[in-house]
């Protein structure tokens, strides 16, 4: 069996022509995906683009109407149990039992993965430690904060040390500060060689975590590439500076114009200008420093999903849910 696995899988996830219809709605319209071992694929798209449907098919929770997929070398339709052994799934909402404690949740999953009581308890302890939940371990998860629940949910999907992990919008609804925590966890996973499929509505998140990004729209992949390639398509970043004292705004604007060579846009106490690379940031920081200007905000921003979509589709309504044909 080992030899077939090697032959079939230089990709941890490989899907071709996935199609799924719900009544009148074509949720997936011929999606191809490939994720090499140990890499992170970011699936970027608005609500209703088909991201979750694709994940549910790859996690054997749904069957496609057409198309095929292998995960960790196993066909999702013919060998669902083998796929389930190889994957971990973390959904948009935390899939934990609210009446049970954090520890009980993890032990339950371990027992269902055929660990003995002792081994399941050991694994739970490790994960609680790793996710900073040791203190809350014996409290019912109903009392957990949103961030703690997400962490426990992720921990539960790691009990079996899966080769492939699906993270379906892992940070949607989380505070920006909690978002960074989650990113660190994902980075740690990839360091251990886990393959990750991450869906998100934020280009920033895909850019921070993914080796490659597939952009979904209306059940199709409309763009695929590395984050840099994608950013080259949708345009560069925006440098934004907000001086602590509004009096300095004119100076800031002049500085930005000189460094970047383009006229900044001035709006509500801040100045922003499109930049090609991050080199401009260093020059601006040096210039601000030399002039002794204090700032409250200095940011290099990626275009948001709306702008990405506008560039890729020419439509201005990425968040609009439409029935496809």
């Amino acid at each position: 069996m080992a030899s077939t696995v090697v032959v079939m899988t230089n990709h941890a996830i490989h899907a071709e022509g996935l199609t799924k219809r719900f009544g009148e709605t074509l949720a997936l319209d011929g999606v191809d995906l490939s994720v090499p071992h140990g890499t992170v694929l970011g699936v970027l798209g608005p609500n209703g683009a088909g991201k979750t449907t694709a994940v549910r098919i790859l996690a054997t929770l749904l069957q496609p109407d057409a198309g095929s997929a292998t995960v960790a070398g196993h066909d999702v339709l013919r060998e669902p149990d083998a796929v389930r052994r190889a994957i971990g799934l973390t959904g948009q909402y935390a899939a934990v039992d609210e009446q049970l404690t954090g520890r009980e949740n993890l032990v339950l999953v371990g027992r269902l993965l055929d660990l003995t009581r002792a081994a399941a308890a050991r694994r739970a302890e490790e994960l609680l430690e790793q996710f900073g939940l040791t203190e809350a371990a014996d409290r019912r998860t109903r009392t957990y904060s949103g961030g703690m629940r997400r962490r426990l949910d992720l921990a539960a999907s790691l009990v079996g040390r899966p080769e492939v992990i699906y993270l379906d919008e892992p940070t949607t609804g989380l505070d920006p500060s909690k978002r960074e925590d989650m990113w660190d966890v994902v980075r740690e996973l990839t360091l251990q060689g886990t393959t990750v499929l991450l869906t998100t509505q934020y280009l920033e998140e895909a850019d921070a975590l993914a080796d490659a990004i597939s952009v979904f729209d209306r059940g199709r992949v409309i763009a695929h590439g590395t984050p840099d390639e994608l950013k080259a398509i949708v345009g560069g970043r925006t440098l934004r500076v907000r001086p602590a004292d509004p009096v300095d705004l004119a100076d800031v604007t002049a500085l930005l114009a000189r460094v970047v060579g383009r006229e900044p846009e001035v709006l509500k106490g801040h100045a922003s200008v499109p930049v090609e690379d991050s080199a401009a940031l260093a020059a601006v920081v040096a210039g601000l420093d030399a002039r002794g200007i204090d700032v409250t905000e200095l940011a290099l921003e990626l275009p948001d999903l709306d702008e990405v979509f506008f560039t890729l589709t020419g439509r201005n309504e990425s968040h609009e849910m439409e029935n496809v044909r």
Partner: peptide, 23 residues
């Protein structure tokens, strides 16, 4: 069908950590 596959044990565990009776 899939039951004929040998179960993939949880990595990092030894035989003593696993139970196999009547899944």
């Amino acid at each position: 069908m899939s039951n004929t596959l040998a179960p993939r044990p949880v990595p990092g565990t030894v035989d003593a950590d696993r139970v196999t009776w009547w899944p």
